[in-house]
Design a protein around this nucleic acid. Sequence first.
RNA 1: GGAGAGGUGGCUGAGUGGUCGAAAGCGCUCCCCUGCUAAGGGAGUAUACCCCGAAACGGGUAUCGAGGGUUCGAAUCCCUCCCUCUCCGCCA
Length: 422
Amino acid sequence: MLDINFIRDNTETVLKGMKDKGESDLSLVDRVLEVDETWRSLVTKVDNLRAESNRKAKTIGELMSQGKKDEAQKIIKATSESKNEIKKLEEELDEFSRKRDDLLLRIPNVPHDSVPVGSTEEENTVFAEWGDIEEEGWRKPHWELADEHHWIDFERGVKVTGAGFPFYVGPLAKLQRALINFFIDEADQQGYRELQAPYFVNEESARGTGQIPDKEDMMYVIPRDGFYTIPTAEVPVTNFHRDEIFREDDLPVRYVAYTPCWRREAGSYGKDVRGLNRLHQFDKVELVKIVHPSSSYDELESLREYAESLLKKLELPYRTLLMCTGDMGFTQSKKYDLEVWSPGQKRWLEVSSCSNFTDFQARRMQLRYKNEKGKIEILHTLNGSGLALPRVVAALLETYQQEDGKVAVPIVLQSYMGSKWL
RNA sequence: GGAGAGGUGGCUGAGUGGUCGAAAGCGCUCCCCUGCUAAGGGAGUAUACCCCGAAACGGGUAUCGAGGGUUCGAAUCCCUCCCUCUCCGCCA
């Protein structure tokens, strides 16, 4: 959510940002400004009326304690009339503040100046590339390999739960456990504090990070208890500090959390979703930062570099994309995607997405800090995957396979696996 | 799940219908004093929003778990919900 005052003072910037992000309804801005103006004039009116009735109530109190009941009675009569007027105006006030917030929630975050303007994924720019990519060759896709070794059981997953809920079997189950530990240990060394988070969240939390009302359909719902299963650890972890005020000295705050993630992925079928490419349940190690507004773009770069370092250590070729305005998403101001090369499928797979939300999430969540002058300001939030497991596993199986069908273990994982071969 | 008690400012805790945004203590910040240390004295110390103003300051409104109600007036009374604690039940 943007600050209404920011929109008032920087209307052109907001409009340009919306245009660049491909938002079709630019009239939102005019409407929100109009509604806000009405709201503010109503506030003034209501506040004045309430002030008057407070004054009268006080007078009545004084008269009563002096025993002047008749005089008090006179004022009571007069006051009860203005009560109705206040009530009516209060209802109107509520209506307008709701309207204003509705509109406000539909205005996207403003892209940073360094973000390329574009409308489709073709206009993302390649920010970095690492490793040699094999565009031809004998390598099998991971689902064939996994099938041969009976490492992933999709069929039984369908039987037990449904499509997109596979079992990982034997060495592959262990490999996932190894990756999770490796990712968390690496983050821990970089100063991220480990958090084990709830897998269900309530409605306020889903609203805080913006899954509601925007992306409600991505989550599974537990209606009886009013919970949502988390689509990413970002939701519980960022909400960890919701409604809190930090001391400036305590910043920045960095967390790492491993959780399963659940996504309904409604309507996605076909070859893009084969094997481990897209699942309803998957594991992810997520990084979250809560930082001083002045440092969020630096923190984004270090977040990106950190995520890249994981792929380097696993020796998996990757590229980093700087997402263009149109491909970036509603809440972000700048975003990098890391894509790992899948030599069996001859395509890139997204394994991490590192984003700066500036104050957009933090405002909705009332994540704030007190600066040196004692003034309260909104913080900035960032997050990034470090990393999402299934596609890393896919790329790893395909990259480390040998011609005889065996699969080697990356050097950094060998101590976790206790072996050199899967 | 059943029975009972309770939710007040950074913390402890007073306040059961009238000048309470809230006593007191602790903590924290600033100042003074004391030639170190300890102690002492003074001032300040919630959040959001509106109005005025360049700003400082000022004026106002709302908030005592959340929402609704009664009343001229609610932290205080009533209703609903949430949460915490104690006992019982159940249980990894």
